[in-house]
Design a protein around this nucleic acid. Sequence first.
DNA 1: CCGCGATGTATCGGACCGATACATCGCACG
DNA 2: CGTGCGATGTATCGGTCCGATACATCGCGG
Lengths: 212, 212
Amino acid sequence: MLELAILGLLQESPMHGYELRKELAAKLGAIRAAISYGSLYPTLRRLQAAGWITEAAESPATTEEIPALTSRRGRVVYKITAEGKERFAQLIAQTGPETYDDTGFGVHFAFFARTDQATRLRILEGRRRKIEERREGLRDVLARAAERLDAYTLELQRHGLDACEREVRWLEELIANERSGRAPTVPRTGTAGGRREEISPPPPGESRKERP
Amino acid sequence: MLELAILGLLQESPMHGYELRKELAAKLGAIRAAISYGSLYPTLRRLQAAGWITEAAESPATTEEIPALTSRRGRVVYKITAEGKERFAQLIAQTGPETYDDTGFGVHFAFFARTDQATRLRILEGRRRKIEERREGLRDVLARAAERLDAYTLELQRHGLDACEREVRWLEELIANERSGRAPTVPRTGTAGGRREEISPPPPGESRKERP
DNA sequence: CCGCGATGTATCGGACCGATACATCGCACG
DNA sequence: CGTGCGATGTATCGGTCCGATACATCGCGG
């Protein structure tokens, strides 16, 4: 999972570890808190050893402009390789059981913009199936074993059940949306129109997304 | 966390590993899928080594009734010790940062029936604080970094934000409920009364809860 | 000038998972 | 009658990831 996430992020732009962690936290903030360095650095090393990423030189184009005033220290900038891109494409397209658990689904979903529609659909449906199973499990417990459990435990199950139902509905909308029409956005409360707004009129000032 | 959960469950009744796993899945089904044996058995051994639990003999009172027809195999039944109960009491009352993450909170909450009210309140408020922070983080990303992210990532954040807001509201109700009055149940949609119903009229047929 | 918070790299022990192996039991199906 | 299969049951191994910790640099304000 971490491997996939790192490869995905580095595909957008080269980064060093610290930055990677922050971007990861921003992109996956809804899923998991923040990746630990104890996972990050070993994984970076592993990816490098496998040849998916390489260390990039620090000040690349404008070699002599800035360094005088910052005197770049030992920041290690990583960059994805061609093999790394292949690896990413392979990882993002292949689905196993771990694709549908909370973290796995979150990571895959976060990179849906780089995933083909068939795979997106497969993942969304797999996730829905999994959540439906969890939901049924919770319903069973609430229906059948309620008298064995105390009120707090029961309340916990109810809250979990609620979350399941909610997520299934969310997934339904995404799936419908995905199937016919191609807009990623779920219709917000009451907005019925088919017109999907593209997100940003090109931001005027700072655009540091991709390197040209 | 596993340690706490096992100690808590064994406090209700002695069990063997397999049973423990199933009960755990039932009690924490809203939180986590099912504990792996690769965690369970080593932990059981650790707890036994520490003296918190002991192996109990298989057929305890009615020694010769059943064994003829089932010929009890190597099931290892574990039982909590007096020290184990102390340990549980200590673990359930002490709160660290890990008490407020998803799993930690879930486990603590599942044993709220064995937790004193002050601790319950502390945990609920700590959890609320943590979720509020997560919520603010997501709002920040959605407000400030929206144009840097693709529509799918954005949708993920929105869904996460929604879940946060929902959980905060849930916690608010639980906290209010906890503060004045002592009923564990959150008022279900429209049910305004103060009367809290006790759950089960004694179920007539099969009662295989505790061992006699 | 000095401390302090942000930036930045790195390691270590431990918790937990997923796959796997293996043995027994009861029952359904041929 | 046997036989095979799914549930019950115990156990280990490798791998992923976390949390704590250490350490070094930078810019800023007191």
